[in-house]
């Protein structure tokens, strides 16, 4: 090898494409093999993950396997969810209700403060935060807190037109399509961008979409059955 190159490499000034193999230290499987493949193993752990969507399009279903894997000894925190939580849903996910906390923080500063405190407390595993905006310093603080408390933050926000460049470990854009959920990677640490995947609805909602049922869609409830 060239002596100059060797010298540069010794000082770790050269980035090699082979270094992209393992972008995250730890991954947790998403439960969807196609998505695992797209993400290079699964969700990065102890970090902040952004999920952009208009809501009500299986965004919780995506992370549901990861949430279930967190065990039930530690708290799960929902900060400013878009609507009331359904207790029956949480019980379906085998989550003890008294281990779930919902926080309503009308002020952004309070919500971020609460998220950071929960992340680094060490007594929470997953924090779910709904918010519109985040800047670089706030993201860095949340990432450090997540690493310190070995916890995970899922950051939900509406899809925005212009992309602000933030160093997310992973940022996904979710758009509903006719056949399934279109998942686009906006940012992935140590990975290639611009990859897409359509996850069929039947995989996301297996409990009420059966593949054979998908053929006969109707737009109105059959009135004849009402007596």
């Amino acid at each position: 090898m060239n002596a100059l190159l060797q010298q540069l490499q010794n000082r770790q000034l050269i980035w090699q494409a082979s270094q992209t193999e393992a972008p995250y230290e730890h991954c947790q499987s998403t439960g969807f093999s196609a998505l695992d493949q797209l993400l290079g193993g699964g969700w990065p752990q102890h970090n902040v993950i952004e999920l952009q969507s208009h809501g009500a399009c299986a965004e919780l279903q995506l992370i549901q396997k990861a949430l279930a894997g967190s065990g039930s000894e530690l708290l799960q925190i929902w900060i400013n969810p878009p609507a009331n939580l359904c207790a029956e849903y949480l019980l379906q996910q085998k989550r003890p209700l008294h281990q779930v906390l919902q926080l309503n923080a009308p002020r952004t500063a309070d919500a971020l403060w609460a998220a950071e405190l929960c992340l680094k407390s060490g007594s929470c595993m997953d924090v779910l935060l709904w918010q519109n905006n985040l800047n670089l310093t706030q993201l860095k603080r949340l990432q450090l807190a997540a690493a310190q408390g070995q916890s995970q933050l899922y950051f939900f926000r509406p899809a925005v037109a212009e992309q602000q460049l933030l160093p997310w470990a992973l940022s996904l854009q979710l758009t509903p399509a006719t056949t399934g959920l279109q998942i686009r990677i906006l940012k992935r640490k140590g990975g290639w961008q611009q990859q897409e995947l359509v996850l069929p609805w039947a995989e996301l909602y297996p409990h009420f979409i059966k593949p054979e049922l998908q053929q006969k869609q109707y737009s109105k409830p059959p009135l004849s059955r009402v007596s």
């Binding site: 209700l97 779930v100 906390l101 919902q102 926080l103 309503n104 405190l117 407390s121 007594s123 408390g149």
Partner: peptide
Amino acid sequence: QLYSALQLLSLLQARLGKEQVKSPCL
């Protein structure tokens, strides 16, 4: 653990107010 669950709860309630922190129930 930096704070236990109950300690965390006290801190959250102190800043956000007692009624803003709750658990769902069936």
